[in-house]
């Protein structure tokens, strides 16, 4: 058994590859790396070119969504402004009514005060 194993070791010993093997591998590796780099860029470019229509459609959809959102925000802002204006007008109306009531009361009292001495003189007579 030992001798057969020794003969196997001798028969299966390592051998040199053909001349220029390493250079051929290095050349192929360089070409492969170059190709890989080109492929990566081409894949990116092709992805954009092939899906140009989809990109455009997506851009339109995004623009519509953005426009819709902007319009909604503007409408909300206007509605809030209108509501605020109505509240201010209502407050002014209330204030004006109160002022008129107060003015009438003040006028009434001053009229009464000016009328009282005249009555007294009438009573004295």
């Amino acid at each position: 058994m030992k001798r057969l194993e020794e003969e196997l070791r001798a028969a299966l010993k390592r051998e040199d590859p053909p001349l220029g093997f390493a250079e051929r591998v290095l050349a192929r590796a360089a070409a492969q790396a170059h190709q890989r780099e080109r492929t990566r860029w081409a894949r990116f470019r092709d992805a954009f070119a092939i899906h140009r229509l989809q990109w455009a459609a997506a851009a339109v959809v995004l623009a519509v969504i953005a426009g819709g959102v902007g319009l909604r925000i503007e409408q909300d802002r206007r509605a809030e402004g209108e509501a605020a204006k109505r509240q201010v007008m209502l407050a002014l109306h209330i204030a004006s009514a109160k002022w008129q009531v107060a003015a009438r009361e003040i006028n009434g009292q001053s009229n009464a005060r000016t009328a009282t001495p005249h009555d007294e003189t009438e009573n004295h007579e």
Binding site: L12, K13, E15, D16, F21, V25
Partner: peptide, 17 residues
């Protein structure tokens, strides 16, 4: 890579052979 290639080329080639 070049050093690894030169270091292991005999091994890989002979296994394949």
């Amino acid at each position: 890579f070049a050093s690894l290639l030169r270091q292991h080329q005999r091994m890989v080639f002979t296994i394949a052979l």
